[in-house]
């Protein structure tokens, strides 16, 4: 039947065209949202080694996580399939992993922030492939990214400068003090971190 063949050919083609537009739109919107949230949390201390400001008073700690399961659209999967024939850089998958990692990290930070913590240290990232349930092993169905770390609640802001141990170059050019703030987050607003150290304790510490 010629009409049946037409449907079999037309449907994937239609899907390709449709997902080319929708996939790109979803991706662009996600990146725009991510940028806004990331800018807001740029000054929220997040490090991936077990660092605690040496003179900080830690009031509470807890494990915080952020995770996301994300999948690539039909069109991009088709592109990747073509790429598999020749080998090389699979450009259509790169933004997927990039935005998934950034999303997971942002969720972790937002979780910490929402629960009243001021910083996250020792951050780790975990990637897992969630297989397709349809028996055949073709095409990555989805990936899960998990970000986790230890959140710190500080009694008051420490006096020492950040990056004294690892980032001597940054420290030499532009001294950085610890910062724990959120600025103009689209959903969570602004927050200024723990209270500043009082002058009396400053005198005590320097003496």
């Amino acid at each position: 039947m010629p009409s049946e063949a037409l449907v079999q050919l037309l449907l994937p083609l239609l899907l390709l065209v449709a997902t080319y537009f929708t996939g790109n739109a979803i991706e662009r919107r996600h990146f725009a949202k991510l940028r806004a949230r990331e800018n807001a949390s740029r000054r929220f201390l997040t490090v991936n080694f077990p660092y605690v400001p040496p003179d900080a008073e830690v009031a509470a700690t807890d494990l915080v996580t952020g995770s996301v399961v994300i999948s690539v659209d039909y069109f991009k999967r088709f592109l990747a399939g073509l790429r598999m024939l020749f080998g090389g850089r699979v450009k259509s998958y790169e933004p997927l992993l990039d935005r998934a990692r950034r999303e997971a990290l942002m969720r972790m930070k937002e979780n910490a922030f929402r629960r009243g913590f001021h910083a996250v240290t020792n951050v780790r990232l975990e990637t897992a492939r969630i297989g397709s349930s349809s028996g055949n092993n073709q095409g990555t169905a989805a990936i899960e990214i998990l970000a986790y770390g230890t959140a710190l609640k500080l009694a008051r802001r420490p006096l020492t400068r950040f990056a004294s141990r690892t980032n001597t170059i940054i420290n030499a050019t532009r001294p950085q003090t610890h910062s724990f703030s959120f600025r103009n987050h689209p959903h969570l607003g602004s927050f200024e971190g723990p209270p500043t150290t009082k002058l009396t304790s400053l005198a005590l510490r320097s003496g």
């Binding site: 997902t19 996939g23 979803i26 995770s67 399961v69 690539v72």
Partner: peptide, 26 residues
Amino acid sequence: RDIMAGFKNIVGGELTGYTELLMEAR
């Protein structure tokens, strides 16, 4: 959830059902 995820697999984007499932399991 799998049916929804199968649909989402065409469009692309986050599979919210799976995110929740994995967080619950973890």
